[in-house]
Amino acid sequence: MIRIAIANQKGGVGKTTTAINLATALAATGMRTLLIDLDPQGNASTGLGIGHAAREYSSYDLLLGEATVAEAVIHTRVPLLDIIAATQDLSGAEIELIDVAERTHRLKNALDAAQEQWDICLVDCPPSLGLLTVNAMVAAQSLLVPLQCEFFALEGLSQLLTTVERIRGRFNSDLSIMGVALTMYDRRNRLTDQVADDVRACLGKLVFETVIPRNVRLSEAPSHGLPALIYDHRCSGSEAYMQLARELIGRLPQPEPRPEMAA
Rank of each mutant, 00 (worst) to 15 (best):
I4G: 04
I4Q: 05
I6H: 04
G14C: 00
T18M: 03
A19Y: 05
I20S: 10
I20P: 04
A23K: 09
A23Q: 10
T29D: 04
R32K: 14
T33N: 00
L35C: 03
D37T: 08
D37P: 05
D39P: 03
S45I: 10
T46S: 13
G51A: 14
E56I: 14
S58Q: 08
Y60A: 07
D61A: 12
D61K: 13
L62R: 11
E66Y: 06
A72Q: 11
V78K: 09
D82T: 06
I83C: 01
A85Y: 12
A93L: 02
I95E: 08
L97P: 00
L97R: 06
I98W: 02
E102S: 15
R103I: 00
H105Y: 12
R106S: 02
L107E: 10
K108P: 02
L111D: 01
A114T: 08
A114P: 00
Q115R: 15
D124P: 05
D124W: 12
S128N: 15
L129I: 12
G130K: 13
T133I: 09
A136E: 12
A139Q: 03
Q141D: 15
L144E: 03
V145C: 02
P146N: 07
L147T: 04
L147K: 01
A153R: 06
A153W: 00
G156Q: 04
G156T: 05
L157M: 15
T163W: 07
E165A: 13
I167H: 06
R168Q: 15
R170T: 12
R170G: 03
D174I: 04
A181E: 01
M184V: 02
Y185R: 02
Y185P: 05
N189Y: 10
L191W: 11
L191M: 15
D193V: 02
Q194H: 14
D197Q: 15
D198A: 14
L203P: 01
K205M: 11
E209V: 13
T210Y: 11
V211F: 12
R214C: 04
R214A: 01
N215S: 09
N215H: 11
V216K: 07
V216R: 09
L218A: 10
A221E: 14
P222Q: 09
S223M: 14
S223N: 14
S223I: 10
P227K: 01
D232M: 05
D232A: 00
H233A: 15
S238A: 15
M242K: 13
L244H: 14
G250Q: 08
L252A: 05
Q254S: 07
P255R: 05
